[in-house]
Amino acid sequence: MFDGCPECGGSYEVDAAASAVVCPNCGRRVSINREPLLIVSGASGTGKSTVLRELSGTREDVVFLDSDTLWREGFWDELDWYFRTWLRLCRDVAQSNRPPVLFGGGFGVPANLEPHSELEWFSSVHYLALVCDDDEQKRRLRARSSAEHPNQYDMSEDDITEQVEFNRWFKNEADRDAFTMIDTTERTVETTARRVNEWITTHTDSD
């Protein structure tokens, strides 16, 4: 939708103060909606997919998105393309006057998003991370089936160890000023989904 100026093919630049984009080549100006971007993240096994299923269809003021929809193993060699493509999709979703709520593990690492100019299209970016105890995470990952998680099933012990380390990163390294944390170890799905829903409301109402 906004990947190039239709008049000259130039790349738009965001004028945040005016909620518009401008082509620096020909001067074409287009108004845009700058909605907040909400990221629900966490390592595999902490509850993202379960919460997304619980919340899907419950709100009309936001758009829920699952980053696994586009994921393929070959993207390990094209991670920048993967993150940027999702930012473009969220940018276009935001033009419907509804904030995108993107569920995805790697999107909770700000360094994966910050290099991309598409972030300028959003009024703000908010991060929520689901975390849990190591033993509970391992139990959940070993119990997964291909039917429930077609993109991540049959994880090796090395894969599980990697996800446990990722979970620890959120718990120990993530910037507490930027992140909201929800520990899902002993919370029911309903309780966790309610907390996530409240977080979404807080950050959509405030913007």
Rank of each mutant, 00 (worst) to 15 (best):
D92R: 14
E13L: 10
L128D: 00
P36V: 07
T192L: 00
D177M: 10
M181Y: 00
T46Y: 00
V21N: 02
E173H: 07
T161W: 04
D134C: 07
E190D: 13
E173M: 11
G104C: 14
H149E: 13
D133V: 04
S41T: 02
V40S: 03
D207L: 07
R195S: 12
D159S: 14
I200V: 14
A111Q: 13
S31D: 15
G47V: 00
V131D: 01
A147V: 10
L102N: 04
P99R: 00
D159P: 12
C5H: 02
H149L: 15
R91C: 13
L141C: 14
C5P: 03
T69D: 15
E54K: 09
L52R: 10
Q137T: 03
R139P: 09
T184N: 03
P115M: 04
L113Y: 01
D133R: 05
V109H: 03
D15L: 14
V109E: 00
P110R: 02
G9S: 04
G57Q: 09
G10E: 05
S11F: 15
T58W: 06
V125Y: 12
A20T: 12
F166G: 01
W86N: 06
K48C: 08
V164Q: 06
V93A: 03
C8E: 05
D92Q: 12
A174Q: 00
S117R: 12
Y153Q: 08
R140C: 09
Q95D: 08
R168H: 02
F83Y: 15
V101T: 08
R88W: 12
S11V: 15
T161C: 08
S123E: 09
T180K: 01
L141D: 06
W81V: 15
L55A: 01
E190T: 14
D183R: 00
L55S: 04
L79C: 04
